[in-house]
């Protein structure tokens, strides 16, 4: 009883603080100075039509590197925590429904293609590496659920993961050597504004981020899937 009243007091205090914040908030009617700089200079400096991409990949690329590192550590710790006994991909006793098998055969290549399209066009349209990686991971979920076709190659997954992470850092260091600073995208020619092969190194870097995110999320899902079939 006394515990509950303490909790209610705590929530009420938090609600009071949040209400103060809300009553002090008034909607902005123009950009603040940092965002105004981005809006004025990002299209000419980076050549990317999507300003969110320009910020994520170049101006705040270091944040993205940290984010990819967190994701890598998470996947590694999950794999370490669940490494118990024999590792088998789940084979369902009864065969899957015909609907799921046929649909997965049709949908899998399209899903992978959509993921790749999304992260290659990240500098022109909404989406980008994070969403493309998530779409690739959902293709992996469909593959595991239907259990048709060839087995997923763990070696290929690990090579993709290592290659994309390493390539991301190498491109960043190349920015220091050839251009203005870490993760500068002007190491390649900026090209025509608004076309696929423009914005310097942004499509390359964002594709590497997409592959990295997709590989890490797929790794988490594959590890969790391996636990399903284990005997207790």
């Amino acid at each position: 009883m006394i515990r509950n009243s303490i909790l209610i007091l705590l929530i009420a205090g938090m609600a009071w603080i949040l209400f103060q914040e809300f009553s002090a908030y008034h909607g902005a009617d123009k950009l603040n100075s940092i965002s105004e700089y981005y809006a004025k200079n990002a299209p000419t400096e980076t050549g990317a039509a999507n300003l969110v991409t320009a910020i994520v990949v170049t101006y705040r690329g270091f944040d993205t590197l940290g984010e990819v590192t967190i994701l890598f550590l998470t996947a590694a710790i999950i794999g370490f925590m669940i490494s118990t006994g024999k590792k088998t991909d789940r084979k369902p006793e009864q065969s899957n429904s015909e609907l799921l098998e046929t649909a997965s055969n049709v949908l899998l290549p399209i899903l992978i293609l959509v993921g790749v399209y999304i992260f290659i066009n990240g500098h022109l349209t909404p989406g980008g590496g994070f969403l493309g990686g998530a779409v690739l991971a959902s293709a992996i979920i469909l593959w595991l659920m239907s259990a048709t076709g060839p087995k997923i190659s763990h070696a290929l997954l690990e090579v993709t993961e290592a290659f994309s992470g390493f390539g991301f850092v190498i491109l960043g260091v190349l920015g220091i050597v050839l251009a203005g600073g870490f993760l500068d995208n002007k190491i390649l020619h900026l090209g025509t504004f608004g076309t696929l092969l423009s914005a310097g190194a942004i499509p390359v870097i964002y594709s590497l981020i997409g592959l990295k995110v997709g590989a890490e999320l797929s790794k988490i899902i594959i590890v969790l899937n391996q636990t399903q079939g284990e005997e207790k």
């Binding site: 981005y38 967190i70 994070f130």
Partner: peptide, 28 residues
Amino acid sequence: DAATKIVDPLPQALVLTAIVIGVGVTAL
């Protein structure tokens, strides 16, 4: 005229990374 026509892109970029970190932390 981008500076007078768009919303603030900076919080969107921060949230974009926060979503992906969120799913990783939830899985952990």
